[in-house]
Design a protein around this nucleic acid. Structure first.
Lengths: 131, 131
DNA sequence: ACTACTGTACTGTCACGATAGTACACAAAT
DNA sequence: ATTTGTGTACTATCGTGACAGTACAGTAGT
């Protein structure tokens, strides 16, 4: 099974946090469905070239969020209400990050026009990359 | 002289980095002009309620970037070519952060439409806050 | 001269994220 | 039964950002 997510080590965002997000994103978009299992600690660690402990911590967080629950000796499976939960979490997360950028942009005294131009071109670019 | 910048301690971005940015933003927008002095280490530290060492580190960075240079026993003054430099740095910085968010949004499988809607509403909100 | 400022340079200490390595209880496949 | 793979829980080490505290050379105003 090829893996769908990516880690950005120099992002400011802690790696373990990025892992929990990526898993939640995968659930939100239906790539992993309730009842299915998420990749194992060691496999994910190997695949992402990070430490198993870091993945384990991410998994602990996912359990705290009730997104996932353990089956002893077997692995972690996606819980029932998880998809809905992950979807709302996803939009809230993206929105918050968006707010942060706009907040800094506004704080930097950048012109509304210039900012709008930036947003538009970058949004178009991101759409292009998506194809 | 009232201070114009703000620090967000739980931002992921290191505080010293935030300070250098804020100073560069102030120069970019003309709040501080070449030849003028920037606030002192201790004053800025007191005003922002952070450690003087942290401010000192930010100032060291500003010197490395040739945005500012010291006048012995007196303080730091804004260098000649600084404004241009800070303006381009500012747009580059905002653009990069914008790209990061869009990258994560795209990575989260969020719909183009939903993303566009988010961007628009948040941009409008940020404009409102600006008045 | 004295005082009150500048920047700059240290030494420690602390929290946190990430790493390495080890160990244990359990389940599944052979 | 043995082996392999689950999650989970430790300990220890490292780098970094931020803090506290101290010290020193230089300038400006008095």
């Amino acid at each position: 099974m090829p893996l769908f997510f990516k880690i950005n080590p120099s992002n400011g965002v802690p790696v373990y946090e990025q892992v929990t997000r990526q898993v939640m994103f995968a659930i939100a978009s239906g790539v992993i469905k309730p009842g299915e299992m998420i990749p194992s600690v060691r496999e994910l660690a190997r695949e992402l070239a990070i430490n198993p402990n870091t993945v384990a911590r991410a998994f602990r967080e996912l359990q705290d969020k009730q997104v996932v629950h353990p089956i002893r000796g077997t692995g972690l499976t996606v819980s029932k209400g998880a998809r809905q939960k992950c979807q709302t979490a996803r939009t809230r997360l993206i929105r918050d990050r968006l707010r942060d950028v706009l907040e800094e942009a506004r704080q930097s005294q950048l012109t509304d026009d210039e900012l709008e131009k930036l947003i538009n071109t970058e949004f178009q670019n991101s759409k292009k990359r998506n194809r």
